[in-house]
Write a protein that binds this DNA or RNA. Structure first.
Lengths: 256, 256
DNA sequence: TCCTGTAACTTGTCTTGACAAGTTTGCCGA
DNA sequence: TCGGCAAACTTGTCAAGACAAGTTACAGGA
């Protein structure tokens, strides 16, 4: 009977309210949440709605609990979002390092076989691709070879590739990448990568291949990033029986 | 297959049934699932139960959908549960390969400095550790150096280290690891690892350091796994703005 | 032919009610 | 004081129903 027309779903509001209580410190790790029955009263909703909100927090790993056990705060969730996960710039700034970039190439060309398969394009379809050398405090650490479908890639021409985060700039132009599949491998540095990164040939390099998609699951980007093996690690956090994980890049020698 | 028909929640059974239809190819990526109403009839449950099952598949990224839009299969999913994620044996069997193991060492000794920090133990506390060489179809691909806290490690003496999955065997003895933090790095193979894996020295190797915890978040295991770089990759799937990811090991040259 | 509006269908949200299964609490007896 | 047992409490599971909001299909008119 409540109008609630333009507002968000009730369960989302409740989840957000609880999230903020956790983030603000009102609920510290280890402290118990109110029981479902109490929350039902506090928010004046049915138990199903409360449970929907709690399920969201549980999926984020913010709370733990079980049958007969009142939910307990696990950690004060530091909001990791997609940008942070795949954006070198955002990550570096958050770590207190200074990121920079040098674009080595930006072109529009027919898609090659591999990218065609990953982006689900017909062979020969035009795409945009660039190669960038990324640096931390002036030291080269990453060679980035990205490929974008034409509709998105066209926007790259208006972006400052050597400036801020490409994802950020694309986001400002209405391109939202919200899902990605990434594959991590250890390879030996080839001649070009070795000289760009300033390491000996055949040094171990961390290769991350990324296929990024929009909300509909349409692949828009296909990239190969190559990190100096002596400078980078990738950490994965996963919990429960479900394969969900928080992923964070971490510099191996620098900040700990 | 374990009995499983005993008293598993109905929604879990439905989710599993749908998962298998997807994995078996009966439902291919792009094809629509039956509507909730139809599933309600097929499984003779209420709509809430069906939705609970679909929510699980959605969290795993297997299906997509939205209001008024019938769910659609996204991909034939791999990684399913924590065991698969960290258990070489389970993963290999599911991929149709034959895993085997050779235990090189198993000992009880005082904890070293690094493991003490990871396991949050006092320096000098006794722990159990082992080194295993893992093989796929007889070919060595992984050197595993694991450290367990004493209460868990003691159980290793009753386990068949060269037989099935250690996690499976520990699970049967009441030790449930449900959370892990893993760090992935590319390093050069040292002399010992190189000869064990049968690759040249300084070959690229994928190192996975793992800190595994029980439901209360207490660290029970600290391990360093080293995979042949030419044989293994790790794939991460993450979606939404939330840091959830499906993680699946995948053989680079062999399987698939 | 093209477009538009409506009806049917589908999923999202929310409620109420019930029982099962596990945990916590506190009382009582030894 | 200690141990065990039972009641109270809590979460997990499931049902049935109702309405809102979005999508699809189709008939009919311009």
């Amino acid at each position: 009977m409540p109008s609630r027309s333009a507002s968000r779903p009730r369960h989302a509001e409740i989840a957000q309210a609880l999230r903020e209580k956790i983030r603000s410190g009102e609920l510290t790790p280890g402290s118990p949440l109110p029981s479902e029955a109490r929350l039902t009263g506090q928010f004046a909703v049915s138990r199903g709605t409360v449970r929907q909100a709690l399920a969201a927090l549980r999926a984020e790993g913010l709370i733990a609990g079980g049958r007969g056990r009142v939910p307990v705060v696990r950690r004060t969730g530091l909001a990791q979002n997609f940008d942070q996960l795949v954006s070198f710039s955002l990550w570096a700034r958050q770590m207190g390092r200074t990121p920079s970039a040098r674009t080595l190439e930006l072109s529009r060309r027919p898609v090659d076989a591999e990218a065609a398969e990953q982006l689900e394009l017909e062979p020969g379809t035009p795409i945009f691709s660039y190669t960038r050398l990324r640096m931390l405090d002036g030291e080269p650490v990453l060679v980035e070879r990205a490929t974008f479908v034409e509709t998105v890639g066209r926007l790259l021409l208006d972006c400052d590739l050597d400036g801020g985060s490409v994802y950020e700039q694309l986001g400002a132009r209405g391109v939202e990448l919200v899902e990605a599949q990434q594959t991590i491998a250890a390879i030996a540095a080839g001649g070009e990568d070795a000289s760009l990164l300033g390491v000996p040939r055949r040094s171990p390099v961390l290769e991350v291949r990324r296929r990024a998609m929009d909300a509909e699951g349409v692949a828009l980007e296909w990239s190969r990033d190559r990190y100096r093996g002596d400078a980078f690690e990738i950490t994965i956090h996963n919990q429960d029986t479900l394969p969900r994980a928080g992923v964070a890049l971490r510099s191996a020698n620098g900040g700990r």
